[in-house]
Amino acid sequence: MQALGLDVLFKGSNLLRLLGGLWKALEISLIAVALSLILGVLFGILMTFRNPVIRALSRIYLEIVRIMPQMVLLFLVFFGTTRVFGWDLNAEAASVIVFAFWGTAEMGDLVRGAVISVPKHQYESAFALGMTKSQTYFTIIIPQAIRQLIPLSINLITRMIKTTSLVMMIGVVEVLKVSQQIIEANRMTSPNAAFGIYLTVFVLYFIACWPFSILAKHLERKWSN
C-alpha cells in the first residue's frame, strides 16, 4: 500500500474529497447533457428542413464544433469573451456553455441522421394507408428514429462525461485538481501518492462511463433488426 501510494486515500477524508471532485465534473457534464439533449433535438429537426439559409447556417455551426478542439472553445469562452465583452463568467458557467454548445451540435447531427435513416417507403406506405402527416410522424417515423437515436446519444453522453475532465485546465476544482492538492499535501509522508491517486481517478472515470457504454451496446444489439 505504502509503495503504491494507496495509503493516502484512507488518510483523513481524501477519498471523499476525490469523490466530491468527480461529482463536480459529473455535475457540469450532466447539466450540459440535459441542455444538449433538449436543444439538440430541436436543432436536429431544424437541420432536416430544406431551407437553404437554415441549412448553410447549421452546417457552419456543425463544422465549427467538429473542427475546434473543446479546449480551444473553453479558452475562447473563458478567456476570450470575458476579455472582449468585459463580463464576469465563472469557470463552471463557461464549461457548461461550451459543453452545451458542443453537445447540441453533435446531438443535432445524430437526430438528423436518425430521421433521415428512416427509408422513404415508410412515409409513402403510411400515407398510402390513409394516415395523416402527424399520425405518420408519431406512430411510424419517430418510434423508428428513436430506436436508432438512443444508443448513439448514450455514447455521446459518455463522450461528454469524459471531455469534462478538461475543465480542470480553466481552473475548475474537479477530481484532477483535488488529486494534485492531495498529492502536494502528502509529498513528505507518502512520496508515491501520485501513483495511487491517479490510478484511483482512472478507475473512478472508468466506473462513471462504463455502465453507459454497456447500456448503449446492449440497446444497439437489441434493436438492430
Binding site: 475532465s165 484532477l176 501520485a194 491517479y198 457504454s213
Partner: peptide
Amino acid sequence: EIFRNTPLLIQLFFLYFALPKI
C-alpha cells in the same frame, strides 16, 4: 473497454505522473 471509457487527460496524467513512481 478501458481506453474507450476513460478521458485522454486522465490517461496522460497516469502515464506521465503516476508511472514514474513505480
